[in-house]
Simulated scan of single mutants.
Amino acid sequence: MFFLPLQDLKPSNIVVKSDCTLKILDFGLARTACTNFMMTPYVVTRYYRAPEVILGMKYKENVDLWSVGCIMAEMICHKVLFPGKDYIDQWNKVIEILGTPSLEFMNRLMETVRNYVMNKPQYPGVSFTELFPDWAFPSESEQDKVKTVQARDLLSKMLVIDPESRISVEEALHHPYIHVWYDPTEADAPPPQISDKQLEEREHTIEQWKELIYDEVMDWEERNKNGLMKEDCSDVASGSASQSSSANDISSMSTEHTLASDTDSSSIDTLTGPLDESQ
């Protein structure tokens, strides 16, 4: 399977069409799947930012599963799970709900960050049954293929502070709550190929970029509809009328109004002075 960290999953970056087709928007912070991701704290709107990003640690593909867990929790509870006012308050919200992380996790932190984290009060955390009670989920019937207990179990595996203990992308795809929709032809498909690797190296006007992006989207829709490769599509633009009408059929899942400060570039490791909550 081919995975890459998207790094900015949040409700306002997800849209759903009337046929329940879900699409992810905004890949501006996505990274290619290589051994050394470009590490930057300027990833993920704060409410959905994983602990490893907040604490200035290296991250991998399952950084997105923390965000997915936050989004899923928000859909169930109808409120943001970790509504931090700044990156330090964000960390405080996380440990107050999920509990103080293990010493093994803390030992992997930079010294200044570790000292700050270890000097915080010890929190036992809230049980997931209390966080997500049965009444918060749709009522079940014997015919239901997905169960409340499965949803809660998936949440408990995604909302794990230590990324080494968090569920992986591949494991999540095979989780009982997700597997009912699992499509191996989609999950095991080869990564998309870049037909013109020099495209981004050339200069284009804004209007030219708009046209190139539009053509690429139309080509993808045509291939997806007909199961054809790009070279087999005789007229990509032929579907433009129907596709443009379907664009009006998309609605955002967003339940929050994202503020500019929500995408601040701060993480605890960027502080050079004493780590205290007044900063």
Rank of each mutant, 00 (worst) to 15 (best):
F2I: 13
L4G: 03
P5I: 01
L9P: 11
I14H: 04
V16Q: 03
V16E: 05
V16T: 03
K17E: 06
K17S: 07
K17G: 11
S18L: 02
L25P: 00
G28L: 07
L29G: 02
A30V: 03
A30D: 13
R31P: 04
T32Y: 04
N36L: 00
F37T: 04
V43W: 02
T45N: 08
R46N: 09
Y48S: 10
R49D: 13
A50I: 10
P51H: 08
G56F: 08
Y59E: 11
N62Q: 12
V63W: 12
V63K: 00
D64W: 08
S67C: 07
V68A: 02
V68K: 02
V68G: 03
C70I: 01
C70E: 09
I71V: 10
E74N: 01
M75Q: 13
C77W: 01
V80G: 09
L81H: 05
F82N: 03
P83D: 12
P83C: 05
K85D: 12
K85H: 09
K85W: 09
D86K: 00
D89H: 12
Q90F: 00
I97N: 07
L98E: 14
P101F: 09
S102N: 08
L103A: 10
E104M: 08
M106Q: 15
R108E: 10
M110F: 11
V117Y: 05
V117W: 08
V117E: 11
K120N: 15
P124W: 06
P124R: 10
G125I: 10
G125A: 12
T129S: 08
P133Q: 01
D134E: 12
D134R: 09
A136N: 11
S139T: 13
E140N: 12
Q143D: 15
T148G: 01
T148Q: 03
V149I: 07
V149E: 13
R152M: 06
K157I: 14
I167P: 15
S168R: 04
E171D: 13
P176N: 12
Y177S: 10
I178E: 13
H179E: 15
Y182H: 15
D188L: 15
A189P: 15
P190M: 03
Q193I: 14
Q193C: 11
I194V: 14
E201G: 15
E201V: 07
R202Q: 15
R202E: 14
E203F: 13
T205M: 14
T205P: 09
T205W: 15
T205L: 14
Q208L: 11
K210P: 06
L212N: 10
I213Y: 03
Y214E: 11
E216V: 03
D219A: 05
D219L: 09
E222V: 00
R223I: 01
R223E: 08
R223G: 09
N226E: 02
G227T: 04
M229S: 04
K230N: 04
K230E: 02
E231C: 05
E231H: 06
S238I: 04
S238C: 00
G239T: 04
S240M: 01
Q243N: 06
Q243R: 02
S245L: 07
N248L: 12
N248I: 10
M253D: 04
M253R: 02
D264Y: 00
D264I: 01
S265V: 00
S266P: 00
S267P: 00
I268T: 06
L271S: 03
L271K: 09
G273C: 07
G273Y: 10
P274V: 05
P274K: 01
D276I: 03
Q279Y: 09
